[in-house]
Design a protein around this nucleic acid. Structure first.
Length: 267
DNA sequence: CTGGGGATGGGGCCC
DNA sequence: TGGGCCCCATCCCCA
């Protein structure tokens, strides 16, 4: 499915200040350092939980993100399934998905660290990551100006060789490349991630660590976003509102289901 | 069927 | 400029 969130959407002026949230134990960062082959993760104080939502933002269906009202056909989908969470998905489009599976990795390291483009076998994910960067290039791009005139090489376009995406800066491209190379590997299960904090969150699934506590009940969560969603269940007026029947939902996905249901099929 | 939790991906922002 | 974090978004699964 299209990952509609790839399109930046400005809904609020400012993010919630989670630093105001009540402090929790610091042991949440007591993860296995050996699980971070690329980075050592500094601890960070005061980023704990319990959002203090002073007022409830209610999203009506009409105010939903554009990407939510449709399947966002305008957003090009990279080749291959993007639903990485699907355990049954076996990456139909060969290439970039070699390292992108939710399944435990192949026990054969030769398979795991092989470049999808040239077939080069690398000794480690990090080596593979570095190698795969060599497949990415920058090239001049023709830019159409507002007057209709065209100019070339006015800005560089950094193309990803793994997918059709392109970026205006090398930094953005490098960050994107990580989603292909997945340099952060969990030493417990071998699963690979693009970002260190994704790995960190994943490791919590192994450790059972749940640093984000709900102030209203005794539930705790391993992920801040999940706590945020949970907090909606404590709210009488939930964040996402149906424009037709004014019913509110704690999650956009629930509102989406609702709008697609027989209740409000036209919304 | 619905609501909620778990897990995860990625762009933007901040330092 | 790059790393780290925040937030949003979504899918899957289960009660």
């Amino acid at each position: 499915m299209p990952r509609s969130f790839l399109v930046k959407k400005y809904f609020s002026n400012k993010k919630p200040n989670y630093s105001e949230l009540e402090s929790q134990t610091d042991q949440r960062y007591a993860v296995f350092p050996q699980c971070f082959p690329l980075d050592d993760f500094p601890t960070r104080e005061g980023d704990s939980v319990v959002p203090n939502y002073p007022s409830v933002l209610v999203w009506t269906a009409s105010a939903l993100p554009l990407s939510f009202t449709a399947e966002s056909p305008s957003i090009p989908s990279p080749p291959g399934p993007l639903d990485l969470s699907s355990q049954s998905s076996s990456s139909s489009s060969g290439e970039e998905d070699d390292c992108r599976t939710s399944d435990p990795p192949s026990p054969d390291p030769a398979d795991r660290f092989q470049c999808a483009h040239c077939g080069k076998t690398c000794s480690s994910p990090a080596v593979l990551s570095r190698h795969q960067l060599t497949h990415c290039t920058a090239s001049p791009q023709t830019v159409i100006t507002t007057t209709g005139a065209t100019s070339t090489s006015t800005r560089a376009a950094f193309h990803c060789k793994h997918c059709p995406k392109e970026y205006n800066s090398l930094g953005a491209l490098k960050m994107h490349i990580r989603s292909h190379t997945l340099p952060c590997v969990c030493t417990t299960c071998g699963k690979a991630f693009s970002r260190p904090w994704l790995l960190r969150g994943h490791i919590r699934t192994h450790t059972g660590e749940r640093p984000f506590s709900c102030p209203h009940c005794n539930r705790a969560f391993a992920d801040r976003s999940n706590l945020r969603a949970h907090l909606q269940t404590h709210s009488e007026v939930k964040k996402y509102q149906c424009g037709t029947c004014s019913r509110t939902f704690s999650r956009m996905s629930l509102l989406h289901k609702h709008t697609l249901s027989s209740c409000c099929p036209s919304v």
